[in-house]
Amino acid sequence: MMINKQVNNAEEAIVDIMDGQTIMLGGFGLCGIPENCITALVKKGVTNLTCISNNAGVDDFGIGLMLQQRQVKKMIASYVGENAEFERQLLSGELDVELIPQGTLVFRCMAAGYGMPAIFTPAGIGTEVAIGKEVRNFNGKDYLLETAFNADFAIVKAWKGDTSGNLIFKGTSRNFNTMMAMAGKITIAEVEELVEPGQLDPNQIHVPGVYIHRIFQGSHYEKRIEKKTISK
């Protein structure tokens, strides 16, 4: 019998996320974000969270919804330019923010998922990102030592999944989702379509189920487009 990781819904998947914990949220912009779990986190009202995510959503969607409710104590991200409420909380000092290079963000997830304590990257050398960090020179070039993330939960969103946790993504929604899926101490996956084991082609799996602890089929995906751009 195949291991079964299915839970009923987002509320059940996030039931033990507590105040003050660190959570990773997959997605790039609004593409591939775990909409159902974000809604459930807002409803649950959990606070003092440290969120690791490439972006912070927009004012009224994605992580922006959690910012509105003041649920986020600290944000670790690479680009937050699309969110006025975020910028306001940041400049007023209400929100603690650590901005890090996008590659560093994903490699620190990767390190966690691959059981590596740290990585070396040239990104940020000579900038304020390097302050206080160990620098090593390899083959004549300087690199920063950056440590693996240590997140209590990772929450990702895939296109398809099976009840044993295998995931398949579509388009550019893979982004941070695969590495975050691998990086969480507990990883929650919400998918647009959940199927039985055997119904996904093993050749096409992007994240094997071993990394996933809970999976459910989400509903009412809005999949909002941030900048709809049409060719003339």
């Binding site: 991200a77 690479s78 680009y79 937050v80 330019g81 910028e87 940041l90 400049l91 923010v97 901005l99 890090i100 290079p101 996008q102 590659g103 560093t104 990257t121 040239p122 990104a123 940020g124 050398i125 900038t127 990102v129």
Partner: peptide, 20 residues
């Protein structure tokens, strides 16, 4: 990527791109 006290959007992928 940043104007202290005024604008903070973040570096996104720029620091990685220019470093390599």
């Amino acid at each position: 990527w940043k104007i202290p006290g005024k604008m903070v959007k973040g570096m996104g992928g720029a620091m990685d791109l220019v470093a390599s």
